[in-house]
Simulated scan of single mutants.
Amino acid sequence: MKDTDEAVRPGPLSIRTDCVDGIRVVTVHGEIDHTSRDTLHRALTPAPDGGRPRTVIDLGGVSFMDSSGVNVLIAAHQSATGADGWLRLADPQESVLRLVRLVGLDTVIPCHPTLQQALRG
């Protein structure tokens, strides 16, 4: 019998940041919980002189998120809107989308089924 736990278990949180048409795209893979919240928070913090922050968070690679992740997303949203910018969520997996809807996060932060839709707004 082959042990496949390592093959299906997501690795530590990884974050990549790109820019598409002047919009910052933060692509997240792994699990967002209390052990990774600070890493995500740092990735979502806009540069102090970055102007009007416009950010899409691609959640397609996130297999799990708890209330720690929700709190980070709310703080990032508040920071962006306070600087006359915005934050959008893209491509959440079903388990993450369930949490987003359960806590009403999708009524505060726009949540789109694809990255392209989130970029278009």
Rank of each mutant, 00 (worst) to 15 (best):
I15F: 02
T81V: 15
V96N: 06
L115A: 04
L59D: 03
D91R: 14
L87Y: 03
M1K: 12
R88V: 05
I57P: 02
R24T: 15
C111L: 03
A90T: 04
R16W: 12
V62W: 00
T4L: 14
L102Q: 01
T17A: 13
H112V: 00
H34M: 12
R42Y: 14
C19I: 15
E31A: 08
P53D: 04
D33S: 05
H34C: 10
N71H: 15
D3F: 11
L115I: 06
T45A: 08
K2E: 15
C111E: 03
S68K: 12
S68C: 13
S79W: 08
D18V: 11
E94I: 10
T39F: 12
R98N: 11
T17N: 11
G82Q: 02
T27D: 10
V20L: 12
V26H: 08
G51N: 09
V108A: 02
S63M: 05
Q78N: 15
T45F: 03
Q78W: 09
D18K: 12
V70D: 02
C19K: 13
V108E: 07
V20E: 13
G11H: 02
L13F: 05
V62S: 01
R24A: 15
P53N: 05
L87R: 02
T55F: 02
S36V: 03
S14W: 09
Q78F: 09
V20W: 11
L105W: 01
P110G: 05
H77I: 06
T55C: 10
S67K: 09
A7R: 10
S67A: 13
D106V: 01
A83T: 11
L89M: 05
S67H: 10
V70P: 04
H41K: 15
G82S: 01
H77R: 10
T55S: 07
C19V: 15
D38F: 13
P53Y: 00
T39R: 15
D66I: 04
K2R: 15
L87F: 03
D66Y: 00
V100H: 01
V72M: 07
H112F: 05
T17F: 07
E31W: 02
A47S: 15
S67E: 10
A118M: 03
I74S: 07
T27G: 10
A118Y: 03
G51V: 09
R101S: 08
F64C: 03
D33P: 06
R98S: 11
W86F: 07
R54F: 10
G22H: 12
H34R: 12
S36N: 05
P113E: 02
R16L: 14
G85C: 06
G11Y: 00
L115D: 04
P110A: 07
